[in-house]
């Protein structure tokens, strides 16, 4: 019996050595994500981090041969956390914008969808195309938006006459919409569809108004943010995005979550 357990221990030790030797060869990359932005990244009922971003991140890590680890960080501290080296890359549906590019570098986009408003089906509101007319139509309306997002900037710059309320997470904004404290929320159309409209709480709500996709605010799609000057990491990630686009991994993940091409044009 004693011999057997010794043998087991020896095998286990070899196993540990083998895996650690393997891991030592791979670059360790910590990935910061938010975990509150379904269906892109969120914590499921088992407490596990799941979603489109997470699956993409895992696929990229396989393609780039990185040993990856996820770090969950609240959205408004997610760029400061990257700069403070709490993690090495942000894969959290972060839109590539000029303002953010002053602080961090981005890979190319890994998806791109328009922003939209959501409001109650019972509420009659006509939001015309174009932001000037839209601003007039929405004067005084309470609009919820997540803090520190491109959508907050877009609203503040283009809908200054609306009553803009900022929330720490999109979930909280959606909750206040359902509670009737807000007339509208604005976010990425996919996030609103999956996180609100397709859920039980979202059955009385619908998209309102046009699609918004202004490069100045909405950027060039969602990319991976890394610290400035870390070009080797950026190039590896860009190459990994191209790899999973080419080998069908991206398509498989795309189809798991969406019934259309989320990569955009």
């Amino acid at each position: 019996m004693r011999k057997l357990s010794l043998a087991v221990a020896a095998v286990a030790a070899i196993g540990v050595l083998a895996t650690s030797a393997l891991a030592a060869d791979m670059q360790k990359v910590r990935i910061g994500t938010e975990g509150a932005y379904p269906p892109f990244n969120y914590i499921d009922s088992d407490g596990k981090l799941v979603g489109f971003d997470i699956d993409i991140a895992k696929a990229l890590c396989v393609a780039a041969k990185f040993d990856c680890e996820f770090v969950v960080q609240d959205w408004d501290g997610i760029i400061p956390g990257l700069i403070a080296k709490k993690y090495d890359a942000i894969i959290a549906s972060m839109s590539i914008t000029e303002e953010r590019k002053e602080k961090v570098d981005f890979t190319g986009k890994y998806y791109s969808t328009p922003a939209k408003f959501v409001g109650a089906k019972s509420m009659k509101v006509d939001i015309p195309e174009g932001t000037d007319a839209g601003n007039k139509a929405l004067a005084g309306k309470a609009i919820g938006v997540q803090r520190a997002t491109i959508h907050e900037n877009f609203l503040r710059d283009n809908f200054p006459d609306a009553d803009i309320k900022v929330y720490a997470t999109q979930d909280e904004a959606n909750l206040d919409l359902a509670n009737g404290r807000l007339d509208l929320v604005m976010a990425d159309s996919m996030a609103l569809k999956e996180g609100l409209l397709n859920t039980e709480d979202g059955k009385d709500f619908e998209f309102k108004g046009p699609d918004y996709n202004e490069p100045k605010w909405h950027g060039l799609g969602a990319g991976i943010a890394i610290r400035k000057g870390e070009d080797a990491l950026r190039e590896s990630l860009d190459k990994a995005i191209a790899t999973i686009r080419a080998d069908g991994t991206y398509q498989k993940i795309n189809d798991k979550y969406f019934d259309f091409d989320v990569y955009g044009k």
């Binding site: 408004d76 760029i79 303002e99 953010r100 002053e102 602080k103 803090r147 520190a148 907050e152 900022v166």
Partner: peptide, 14 residues
């Protein structure tokens, strides 16, 4: 604090 967070969100001048 709310105002400070809005400004930081835009400028990143934490």
């Amino acid at each position: 604090t709310g105002v400070a967070r809005v400004i930081v969100a835009r400028s990143f001048d934490v």
